[in-house]
Simulated assay, not measured.
Amino acid sequence: MTTQKRLQRSDDDRWIGGVCGGLADYTGVDAGLIRLIVAVGTILGFGSLIVAYVVAWVIMPKADPHPSGEPPAPAPPSE
C-alpha cells in the first residue's frame, strides 16, 4: 500500500514556520534550495513571497509527529 503525500509544514526541518521544509518534503527538492529561492525572490522585489509564506503558514497543517498513528514510546527512566 502506498501512502499519499500531503503538503504540510515540517516539524523537523524548520527555521521559522516549517513552510519551506514542508514544501521540500512534498516536492523532493532540498529545503535549502527552496529557502534560497524564497529569499532571493523576496530581495529582488517579489515581496508577495512574504505574504505567500505567511498565508501558507496559516493554511498548511502542521506535520503529524507520529504518522503511523501510534503514540510515542515512553522515555526510559533517568537515574
Rank of each mutant, 00 (worst) to 15 (best):
M1C: 10
T2R: 13
T3C: 02
T3Y: 12
T3D: 12
Q4V: 11
Q4R: 08
K5S: 09
R6W: 01
R6Y: 05
L7M: 12
L7K: 03
L7N: 02
L7F: 11
Q8W: 02
Q8I: 04
Q8P: 01
R9W: 05
R9E: 13
R9V: 12
S10C: 15
D11Q: 15
D11M: 14
D12L: 15
D12V: 15
W15S: 08
W15N: 08
W15G: 13
G17L: 14
G17F: 14
V19I: 07
C20D: 10
G21A: 09
G21E: 07
G22N: 10
L23I: 15
A24D: 02
A24Y: 00
A24S: 10
Y26E: 07
Y26V: 05
G28P: 03
G28D: 05
V29N: 02
D30Y: 02
G32M: 03
L33N: 06
L33I: 12
L33D: 09
L33P: 00
I34G: 00
I34H: 00
I34R: 00
L36E: 08
L36D: 08
L36K: 02
I37K: 01
I37N: 01
I37L: 13
V38N: 06
V38F: 15
A39T: 12
A39G: 04
V40L: 15
V40G: 03
T42F: 15
I43D: 06
L44M: 12
G45H: 07
G47Y: 09
G47L: 14
G47R: 08
S48M: 10
S48T: 04
S48R: 01
S48I: 13
I50C: 10
V51S: 07
A52K: 02
Y53D: 11
V54P: 00
V54E: 01
A56N: 06
W57L: 14
W57V: 07
W57Q: 08
W57Y: 10
V58H: 01
I59E: 04
M60V: 07
M60L: 15
M60S: 05
M60P: 08
K62Q: 13
A63K: 12
D64M: 05
D64Y: 04
H66M: 04
H66Y: 12
P67C: 01
E70H: 01
E70L: 05
P71R: 08
P71Q: 09
P71F: 07
P71K: 08
P72E: 06
P72Q: 04
P72K: 02
A73F: 13
A73D: 14
A73I: 12
A75L: 13
A75E: 15
P77S: 07
P77A: 11
S78V: 09
S78D: 06
S78W: 01
S78Y: 02
S78K: 04
E79T: 03
